[in-house]
Amino acid sequence: MKRQDFRFFHRLRVRWAEVDMQKIVFNAHYLMYFDTAVTDYWRALALPYEQAMHQLGGELYVKKATVEFHASARCDDQLDVAMKCSRIGTSSMVFTGAIFRGEQLLITSELIYVFADPLTQTSRPVPDGLRRILTSYEAGEPMVTLKLGSWAELGAHAGAIRSEVFIEEQGIPLEMEWDEAD
C-alpha cells in the first residue's frame, strides 16, 4: 500500500500520553487514529455525519475492525492517516486505512461498517445517494461547488444557508441578521 493509493489524509502528531513503556504508540490508539480519520473523511465528503445519517434514515455500525502492524510510531511523530472507501456492498461498506510517517507505511486497517436502522440495528441497503457520493469522491470528483450570482438567482438557497449558519448555529437574533438592505 502506498500514499498514492489514497485521496484522503488526516494529519496528526503522536502525543506523549499515547506512547507505552516501550516508547512506541500503544496498539489500541491506532484504532482511535483511524476513527478520527473517518470523521474527517465525512467532512471531506461535505456530509455532516449526524445530519446525513438522519436524512438517510440509518446509522453506520462497525461490524469488523482489523489492524496490521508493519512498524511503530513514536512520540512526536507526525503521521498521515489515509482512508478510502474501497467497497460498497448491499448493506455494508469497507474502508481501507493506512498510517504513514512520511513515505513509510506503519499500519494498515480494514473497517467494515453496516448501514442499519438506528432503533433495531438491523441492516438496511446502503442508500443510493450515499453510494453515489462515496463513489464520486473516490473517483476524484469535487464534493462542493461554489455558485456565484445575484441575490435574485441564488437568494432562496443562500438565505437558507445564511439562516442556518448565523441564526441557528451562531445564535444571532433574526432582527439583527435580516434587514432592509438584504
Rank of each mutant, 00 (worst) to 15 (best):
S123A: 14
Y41K: 07
E59H: 09
Q170G: 03
T120C: 07
K63N: 13
L130G: 11
R132C: 08
G102K: 01
A65W: 05
D128G: 02
C75F: 14
Y137C: 07
E164L: 11
L148Y: 06
W16R: 03
F100S: 00
G129D: 13
G159K: 12
C85T: 00
A152E: 14
Q104F: 00
V14C: 09
F95R: 03
R3S: 07
A46V: 05
V38Q: 08
F166S: 10
V126Y: 00
R132K: 14
G89V: 04
R132P: 01
D128K: 12
V144M: 02
D80K: 00
P48W: 11
R101Y: 01
A71W: 02
F100H: 01
A156P: 02
L148D: 05
D5L: 00
T108K: 05
E164T: 13
D20I: 05
T39S: 12
T122P: 04
H10S: 12
T108Q: 12
P125Y: 03
E138N: 09
K64V: 05
Q22R: 07
P173F: 09
I99P: 00
D80Q: 01
P173R: 08
I133G: 04
K2R: 15
F115I: 05
L60D: 08
G89F: 02
Y137M: 02
F8H: 12
A156Y: 07
L79N: 03
P125A: 03
M93S: 07
R132I: 02
S72A: 15
A28Q: 11
S109E: 10
A152L: 02
P142M: 07
I172K: 09
I112R: 15
A73M: 01
Q4L: 07
G58W: 11
K64L: 07
G102M: 06
W151N: 12
Q55S: 11
T120H: 07
W42L: 09
M32L: 14
D182A: 10
K2I: 06
I99T: 10
R87S: 08
L105C: 09
T90F: 06
I24C: 11
T145R: 11
R131M: 03
D128H: 09
V81N: 03
S91H: 02
E138K: 09
V62M: 06
F8E: 01
F26V: 08
V38C: 06
S92Y: 05
F115A: 04
E110Y: 03
P142H: 08
A160S: 10
S123K: 06
H157Q: 15
W42R: 07
R11D: 10
P125T: 08
G58K: 04
W178D: 08
G97A: 04
I167G: 01
K63V: 15
F6E: 10
F6Y: 15
Q121M: 15
Y49D: 13
Q170C: 12
E59G: 14
D20Y: 09
M83E: 01
V25T: 03
Q22T: 14
S72E: 02
E180V: 04
D76F: 12
W178I: 15
L47T: 03
L130A: 01
L47A: 06
L105S: 04
R131G: 06
G140D: 13
K64P: 03
D182W: 15
K84L: 07
D40T: 14
P48D: 14
Q51D: 15
E18K: 00
A158S: 10
A44S: 15
A139G: 13
H10K: 13
N27K: 05
V25L: 06
H29Y: 15
K147I: 01
L60R: 05
V67A: 09
